[in-house]
Design a protein around this nucleic acid. Structure first.
Length: 258
DNA sequence: ATGGCCGAGATCCTCGGA
């Protein structure tokens, strides 16, 4: 089974790219972030024509997450925790796969820039609440996959110039510590586990030719709980969609699970 | 050292993104 995650930067502006990606990559489940639309304007039909059912946690203009799936997802949850700013950032659900239940959590974590503002405080609080909630969830379900746009650069190797990002909300030590606290609850960053020293990115800014210069960062991740780690067969960052016309600034990341 | 590119939504500009 293939699960993909992609911050599309508007599901409506990106629908052609998304359809092309799905046709080519054929994920069983697609985590989508930054759909930037309300549920009522979500392009359900484009997905339905490809055999995908969509579960949507929308928001006007900003944020918004969705799960598109070829297989049944149960217990869809739009209130994994109560977001202080009422932003649509998490959609969760359960799938049955190889006679076990796997808890899927699709997240779009806050950006947090600029630092020393309430945006940064919101990001810190958001991660504190998320980590607490994950800790509780682990006591009930050992099979958890968290995927999405974490807005966290885990290590120096994960950004083209780490010195530039010391005081950025994506790389500040305080934020990376929270990311590590989450991992220490019993997860692995699957990309880094499978690629010890590899430099790969999932995001390139639209500005100043970042894509052409490969000025990227790895901020989209799959974290998998220890209990099902041995079932992960592969992880791949598909850079192709970033090179297309009218691209998202992020590109999909994909895992294969047995 | 600075600014640069996009999308949404309400006006021809602002906000948010990372």
């Amino acid at each position: 089974m293939k699960i993909s995650s992609w911050n599309v930067n508007s599901v409506r502006a990106r629908i052609i790219n998304i359809v092309n990606y799905i046709k080519k990559s054929k994920p069983d489940v697609l985590f989508i972030q930054e759909i930037k639309t309300e549920k009522k304007n979500f392009p359900y039909n484009n997905f339905k024509q490809l055999g995908y059912e969509c579960h949507v946690f929308g928001q006007k203009s900003y944020n918004g997450v969705a799960i598109a799936s070829k297989i049944n997802i149960s217990e869809i949850n739009l209130q994994f925790f109560k977001d202080k700013k009422k932003q649509s950032r998490i959609i969760a659900g359960k799938i049955k796969h190889n006679s076990s239940t796997v808890f899927l959590i699709n997240i779009y974590a806050p950006n947090g820039n600029p630092i020393n503002t309430e945006k940064y405080d919101y990001k810190k609080e958001w991660f504190d609440t998320f980590n607490k909630k994950i800790k509780n969830t682990l006591s009930e379900n050992k099979n958890i996959i968290i995927g999405g746009d974490f807005n966290v650069i885990p290590e120096e190797i994960d950004v083209y110039d780490h010195k530039k990002y010391q005081n950025d909300a994506l790389f500040k030590l305080e934020i990376r510590t929270k990311f590590n606290e989450l991992i220490n609850l019993g997860f692995r960053d699957v990309f880094r586990l499978f690629n010890e020293n590899k430099r790969e990115y999932t995001f390139w800014d639209y500005m100043s030719g970042a894509w052409q210069k490969n000025h990227g960062m790895r901020i989209d991740h799959f974290l998998v709980s220890m209990n099902i780690l041995n079932r992960i067969k592969n992880i791949n960052i598909d850079k192709n969609p970033r090179s297309n016309i009218k691209p998202s600034d992020h590109t999909p990341i994909e895992i294969e699970i047995n």
